[in-house]
């Protein structure tokens, strides 16, 4: 699977309260959550037209804090096609895998700039910064997680593999 899009830069320790503040959690409607995506990190971000198909690039510990799955849902529903970070907080990581939001870990994301065009080959684990002409190797998923991703998410995996008696 190939993803190509424009980069939006965020810092270290982007937490779930910034990704989707709790004041918007009285609903679980993805379209409603999408409007407030990254609201407390960059007010108005979720309502911009140019984020559709975009790629979030961040530093360490992306998605720390609450277990709210509303965070990856808001990002996905806002039209963001992939999140690249140096590391992901554990619960955000599993939520993203479980719901099928593409995420990529790169050891160092400091060379990316706002507006760079990036092409990601999820199968090969390659990230190409087209604007800067630089290629990065992504950290591969362990086999078990690849199986979940390939199944299309955790519940698809459950239905296919675990509910058959």
């Amino acid at each position: 699977m190939i993803i190509k899009g424009k980069v939006f830069i965020f810092g270290d320790n982007v937490n779930t309260d910034e990704i989707i503040p709790a004041r918007y959690l009285n609903t679980s409607d993805p379209a409603e959550l999408a409007k407030y995506c990254m609201e407390d990190a960059r007010p108005g971000f979720g309502q911009r037209d140019d984020i559709k198909g975009g790629i979030i690039v961040a530093g360490e510990n992306f998605g720390c804090g609450s277990s709210r799955e509303h965070a990856p849902i808001a990002i996905k529903a806002a039209g963001i096609s992939c999140v690249i970070a140096e590391s992901f907080a554990r619960i955000f990581f599993r939520n993203a895998i479980n719901i099928g939001l593409p995420i990529v870990e790169l050891p160092d994301t400091s060379s990316f700039s706002e507006g760079d065009i990036v092409e990601i080959d999820l199968t090969q684990g390659k990230v190409v910064n087209v604007t800067k002409g630089v290629e990065h190797d992504a950290k591969p998923y362990p086999r078990f997680l690849r199986e979940i991703v390939e199944a299309g998410g955790w519940l698809e995996y459950c239905v296919k593999s675990l509910t058959k008696k």
Binding site: E69, N95, N98, I99, G153, C158, L162
Partner: peptide, 18 residues
């Protein structure tokens, strides 16, 4: 340990978690 809502749906369906 904390997990997400999809994990909990998976537990409701199968009793299991990864």
């Amino acid at each position: 340990t904390g997990v997400g809502s999809t994990d909990i749906a998976g537990v409701y369906l199968t009793g299991k978690v990864w």
